[in-house]
Simulated assay, not measured.
Amino acid sequence: MTGLSESAAKRRKQLLRFISTDLLGPIAGKMPKSCIESLEKASFHANISRHILDIVPVTEARIVKHEVAAKLPPFLRTEAVFGKRNLYLLHNATVSPLSGMAWIENRVIEESVGSLRRIMDWGDVLHEPMLPVTELRVPQPVVVCHPASYYHWLLEVLPNVLFAVTTFPDVRIVLPEHSPRYVLDGLATALGPEAARDFIFSSTPVRVDRLVVPQYHAQPEFTDPQVLELLRSAVKAKVAPSQHRLGTPGSRSRIYISRGKSRRRLAGEAELEERLRQAGFSILHCEALSFAEQVRAFHEAEVVVGSHGAGLSNLVWCEPPCRVVEIFPKNYILDCFAWLSFSRGFDYRYVICDTGHKIDQLAMDAVLALVQ
C-alpha cells in the first residue's frame, strides 16, 4: 500500500496549518487575516508606516462611460469606476517573482495582486511566504515583472512596470528564471534591448531594501483608458510610429485570430477559417509572432475576428475605424474585449455559439454576415 494513512495525512494537514498560522497569522477560509487590504489605509499603523518610504499616485480616480450607438444587452457593460492607482515604495519588503505577491513582516499586501479573490482564484500562491527567501543587495529600487497570462500581463503587469520605470528611472526589474517569451520580448520592445542588462532573475522570493509595489485592481476585466494611453505612447509608438500611415478604408487587413494551436480551441474552427480565408482574411497565430510583429499586424487591421481569448488583447494596437467580431462559446461571456473595443471607439459585434464549445453553421453564417 502506498501513500499516507488517513491518520498520518490528518496530522500532516494539522502541522501545515500550524506552520501557516505561525507564519501568516490566523487563517479565515483560505486567507490569512493578517493580509493588508490597502497600504494607504493601513499607513497609520506604526509597524506598517515604518516600511513605507513613499506613496506616488500614477493615475487619477475616474468614472468612464462609453456612448455606444448600438443597443447592447446588459452583459456588455459600458460604464466603470476606476480608483486612484498608486505606486508604493517600501523599505525592507519581500516579493515573489512568480506572482508579484509582496509582504512585509509576514503580512501579505493585497494590492500587490489585486484582492483576496484573485489570490484564491488564480492558483496556489499562499505557500510563497513560506519559501526560502534570497537577500537581494542592490542599491537601486526593485520592481517585479511577473509572468501572468498574456491578457493580464499586457494590460496590467506591463503598464505597472512602465509606471515604475517612469517614476523611478533607476529601478531594477526582477523576473522568474524561466519567463515566457512574450514577457522578455515585450520588455525589450517597450524598454529597448539594452534594458535586459539590468534584469535580475530569481527562482525564489527576494527581500530587498527598496521595493516598488504597483497597485493592482480587483476588477481586471476593465482596462483604464489611462493605461491604454500609456501602452500606445510608450510601446506602440516605438513599433508603429505616428508617421506610419494606415491605408485607406478597404485596403487595410482583415484578420482572424486562430486558436488552432490552443487546447481551448472551439470545434469547427478549421471550417470557419477556410470560409474567412475565402472572404479575404489572413489567419493569424499570435503565439507564432514576436511581440513587435503582433503590434504591427493589429495596427494595420480594419476587421478583427476571433473567439474569446488572449489574442484579442492586441486590440489595444488597432486604429479606428475597426470592426471587431468576438465569438463566445455557449454559457461563457466576459465583456473585457467589448470594453476594450468601446474604449478605442471600435464597432464591436459578437456571436454566441448555441452548441457549447463548437462553432456551428449558424454561428459561422452570423460571423460571415457581420464581416461582409
Rank of each mutant, 00 (worst) to 15 (best):
V212G: 03
V81H: 12
V295R: 00
L315F: 02
A279L: 03
L24T: 04
G280V: 07
H357R: 11
R323S: 10
V212F: 03
V142L: 07
W153C: 10
D347Q: 10
E6C: 09
T355E: 11
D121A: 15
L230P: 01
G345Q: 03
H285T: 12
Y88T: 08
P321Y: 10
L155C: 07
E229D: 14
S20N: 09
R252P: 01
V64L: 08
T78C: 15
G247M: 10
A148M: 12
P249W: 07
R77F: 08
D170N: 15
S5L: 07
F346R: 07
L211A: 07
G3M: 05
L126D: 02
Q278F: 09
V325N: 00
W103Y: 03
N47Y: 13
V138C: 10
I19L: 15
A190Q: 03
R264Q: 12
A195W: 10
T2S: 14
D365R: 10
R349S: 12
K238P: 09
I333N: 00
D54M: 06
D347M: 03
E67L: 13
R50K: 13
L362R: 11
T223P: 01
Q372D: 14
F342T: 06
S179E: 08
M101T: 10
V133C: 09
V316A: 02
G114H: 04
R50Y: 09
E177D: 11
F168L: 03
V295G: 02
E128P: 02
F82G: 09
L175A: 11
V133H: 02
I255M: 06
D22L: 13
M31T: 11
D347N: 11
V206E: 06
L162S: 06
V304R: 01
D365I: 02
F342R: 07
L87T: 02
L98K: 15
L154W: 00
P129S: 01
A190P: 02
L39Q: 04
Y332K: 14
V239N: 00
G260V: 01
K30Q: 11
Q14F: 14
T78H: 12
F201Y: 15
A102F: 05
Q14S: 15
I104F: 08
R207T: 14
I257D: 08
V58T: 04
Y332P: 06
L246W: 08
N314S: 01
R77C: 09
R50V: 14
